[in-house]
């Protein structure tokens, strides 16, 4: 196989692993938006919080050299994000349901405070998790050569999240309620479902996904201040392109944006950002509801 083909395959694989991370984060954003109509501007802050809290739990365990350090770190980060998300929905957003703009503003205020407090507590130095030995090192990929194993695991996690979400939404009672709520909240309430409680569950789940993204992302590359803005932006673009509230749409959007970013960086490094936004603008012009969004 020629060197050019090798390079192309590496770029595509890079794009896909990036897309996997984008999907994990953006699916939570999309889920919350789909049911609650809340643009959670604090979604990036959830990513950041989970990364830092997960690391605070991970570090002492890692120093003691226990094999499960990373797994506990992941669990702690995800759990903290979920609880935090539920707290936000219960205390701040639940009672202003329907005032979409006000909710977006509240989450903006929240994200400012959270990011600043994280800076105060943890300082500005970047953190990076070390993946456990089982998924560390590199793996031979046909057509690419040696490739970081963890980034392949990232794709696996994204697939698991995607399938899990699909099963949850299509095969469980909670999923049925969520889908019904997306179509008609009031009717769902009239059927005797405790809609606010479903809302809290969805918010916790969506935030947990942002948290999972935070820990996974901080294992693949160092976590630093500013990641909240980056991943909020990614979630916005992925969901705008793919379509609001659709798991498949979010996956499609994530793959498109991940590939575009990597291909752009390889072909025209200083202008690569433009490619992402050309895609977004083109989708907005042709299908304002997103590629797989419902009109």
């Amino acid at each position: 196989m020629s060197a050019g083909m090798d390079l192309a395959a590496t770029i595509v694989l890079n794009g896909l692993t990036l897309a996997a991370l984008y999907f994990i984060v953006a699916s939570g954003f999309s889920l919350i938006f789909g049911l609650m109509r809340v643009v959670n501007m604090a979604h990036g802050a959830m990513y950041l919080v989970a990364g830092y809290v997960g690391y605070a739990v991970f570090e002492p365990l890692y120093d003691r050299d226990v094999w499960y350090a990373w797994y506990v770190g992941v669990a702690a980060g995800v759990a903290f994000a979920a609880v935090f998300g539920a707290f936000v929905q219960v205390v701040l957003l639940g009672w202003m349901q329907g005032q979409e703009l006000r909710q977006a503003l509240v989450t903006i205020g929240l994200s400012i405070i959270v990011a600043d407090q994280l800076l105060a507590i943890y300082g500005g130095t970047p953190r990076q998790f070390f993946a456990p030995d089982a998924i560390f090192g590199s793996t031979q990929v046909p057509g690419v050569g040696g490739y970081p194993t963890f980034r392949l695991v990232q794709i696996g996690i994204a697939l698991a999240v995607g399938i899990g979400l699909w099963l949850l939404l299509n095969r469980t009672k909670l999923g049925m309620m969520i889908r019904a709520g997306v179509d008609d909240r009031q009717m769902l309430g009239a059927c005797g479902v405790n809609v606010p409680l479903v809302g809290v569950a969805v918010f916790a789940l969506g935030s947990a996904l942002a948290g999972l993204g935070g820990v996974v992302g901080a294992t693949a590359q160092p976590l630093a201040m500013g990641a909240d803005g980056r991943f909020l932006l990614i979630s916005l673009v992925v969901v705008i392109v793919g379509g609001m509230g659709s798991v498949t749409g979010t996956a499609l959007g994530a793959v498109l944006i991940g590939l575009a970013e990597q291909i752009g960086q390889a072909l025209f490094p200083t202008y690569s950002v433009i490619l992402t936004f050309v895609i977004m603008v083109a989708v907005l012009a042709l299908r304002p509801q997103g590629i797989l969004g419902r009109a």
Partner: peptide, 19 residues
Amino acid sequence: SVRTRDIYLLMITLALAMG
């Protein structure tokens, strides 16, 4: 952003600004 309103407009203008 001409075809979008409310929070969609908010999201799209934010995405444009950050882009």
